Computed example of a mutant assay.
Amino acid sequence: MSQDLLRLDLLVPALMYCALLWWVGRGLSWTAKLATAVVTLVLIVVVVMAERGWR
């Protein structure tokens, strides 16, 4: 397995995001939870790609 997949600087924020989404989304419908998760994950991917130089 690649070292990049085991880096804590990527794993910890992802786990924190999941916990925060669960806590905030308790009152949301499943479609709203799914939409929030998708939008946030797309933003995370864009930020990571920008930091790495769009490679």
Rank of each mutant, 00 (worst) to 15 (best):
A50K: 15
Q3R: 15
T36C: 04
V42T: 03
L11M: 12
L10R: 09
L6Q: 14
W30K: 09
V39Y: 07
Y17A: 05
L43Y: 03
V39G: 02
A32D: 07
W23T: 11
W30L: 11
L43W: 01
D9M: 11
V24A: 08
C18H: 15
L10K: 09
L21R: 15
R52A: 08
L41N: 00
A35H: 06
T40M: 07
V45E: 02
D4M: 13
S2Q: 13
Y17C: 07
G25S: 03
D4Y: 13
M16C: 12
V24R: 13
V45W: 05
V48F: 02
K33I: 12
A19S: 02
A50N: 10
C18F: 15
L20P: 11
D4S: 14
G53C: 01
M1R: 04
C18P: 03
M1A: 09
L20R: 15
A35E: 05
L15N: 00
V45M: 05
V45K: 01
R26I: 02
A19L: 06
M1P: 06
L6R: 12
V46C: 00
L8C: 10
L20Y: 15
R26M: 04
L21Y: 12
V38P: 01
S29C: 08
A50Y: 13
V24M: 08
A35L: 08
G25R: 00
L5S: 12
L41V: 05
R7E: 11
V45L: 08
E51P: 00
M16P: 06
V47E: 03
M16W: 13
L8Y: 09
L21A: 15
V38E: 05
R7M: 08
P13N: 09
I44W: 13
V24C: 07
A14L: 15
L11I: 15
Y17R: 08
R7V: 06
D4T: 14
R7I: 04
L41A: 01
R55F: 03
V47Y: 08
V24Y: 10
L20F: 13
V47Q: 00
W54M: 14
W23F: 11
M49H: 08
L15F: 03
R52H: 05
L8A: 14
V38S: 05
D9Y: 13
A14Q: 13
L34S: 10
V47G: 01
M49A: 02
P13E: 10
L21F: 14
V42S: 00
L21D: 13
Q3T: 10
G27T: 11
M16T: 14
V38R: 05
A37K: 02
M49V: 05
W22E: 07
L15R: 01
C18M: 15
V46R: 00
V12M: 04
D4E: 15
W54G: 06
